[in-house]
């Protein structure tokens, strides 16, 4: 494949006259780690919903692996190699841990278990064994038959990621993966995401925690009021005057910029 894995070109969408995303473009190379950041209401989650097909953009194009997926319904986009996690964990509460992961296999062309073939005979099957192996490989140490609803938040977050991985995606969309996690859990999650990235999966991350963004991603796209105001390395993002203005307001931004100069 030549060209970027994900290419977003001049994307716009309005809700009732309010332009939520306004002409946003960016590319993401295969194997890259890109952070999508911005103040509240900047349109980060809207971009995710456009990418996964929950919304349809008014203008612009989305390309995945070189193919235009504008008219691909949300259900079929996972078949193009895109999986996602959610801002608030969305596991199926009445399914067990391993059953949730098995749902991640659903769209795979080499899916274990046909639609009308028994998935488990006395609890054993290829699909289940594969899901259990993936859980073990990613270090999620819980009983596979356990109810997900009783598990701690940090573990459910990991299970949701394992479910996304079970689809064997090329691109993983992560919506605030560290939200609601404590320091230890965040550290574990970072290591977890590093392993996912090292296995060749491309990451697109929405995150507020700048420390996490800097240590996980090398590049950031900053949005403000639906427009892209920065696209570059995460190391320099906090020195950019437009970004400072978006986060702190114009006056404070000037002060901080001077301070930064003085320090330098």
């Amino acid at each position: 494949m030549t060209g970027p894995l994900l290419s977003v070109e001049n994307l716009s969408i309005s809700f009732g006259g309010l332009k939520v995303i306004d002409g946003v473009s960016f590319d993401l190379e295969e194997g890259g780690r890109l952070a999508l950041i911005g103040p509240n209401g900047a349109g980060k989650t809207t971009i995710f919903n456009l990418l996964s097909g929950v919304y349809r953009q008014d203008t612009g194009h989305i390309r995945l692996g070189g193919e235009v997926i504008d008219d691909v319904p949300s259900r079929k986009r996972i078949g193009y190699g895109m999986a996602r996690s959610f801002q608030n964990i969305r596991l199926m509460p009445h399914l067990s841990v391993v059953e949730n992961v098995m749902m991640g296999q659903h769209a795979r062309p080499d899916r274990p278990g046909r639609l009308l073939a028994p998935l488990s005979i006395f609890g054993r099957s290829r699909a289940r064994a594969e899901a259990e192996a993936l859980l073990a490989e990613m270090g999620v140490e819980v009983a596979p038959g356990q109810d997900v609803s009783t598990l701690p938040y940090g573990i459910r977050k990991k299970i949701e990621l394992v479910r996304a991985l079970a689809a064997r995606p090329r691109l993983l969309l992560l919506d605030e993966p560290a939200a609601g996690l404590n320091e230890t859990e965040t550290g574990e999650l970072m290591a977890f995401l590093d392993r996912i990235s090292d296995s060749g999966v491309t990451l697109l991350v929405v995150e507020h925690d700048m420390g996490l963004v800097r240590s996980l991603c090398d590049r950031a796209v900053v949005l403000n009021f639906g427009q892209k105001i920065y696209d570059g390395s995460t190391a320099d993002v906090q020195k950019d005057p437009l970004v400072l203005e978006a986060y702190l307001g114009p006056r404070h931004a000037e002060d901080s910029a001077k301070e930064a100069e003085n320090v330098a």
Partner: peptide, 17 residues
């Protein structure tokens, strides 16, 4: 399995294919 998953969260099921 898909039936039980749809019962719990149809939006996520759609995105899972």
């Amino acid at each position: 399995l898909a039936v039980r998953a749809v019962h719990d969260d149809d939006v996520v099921c759609d995105l899972l294919g």
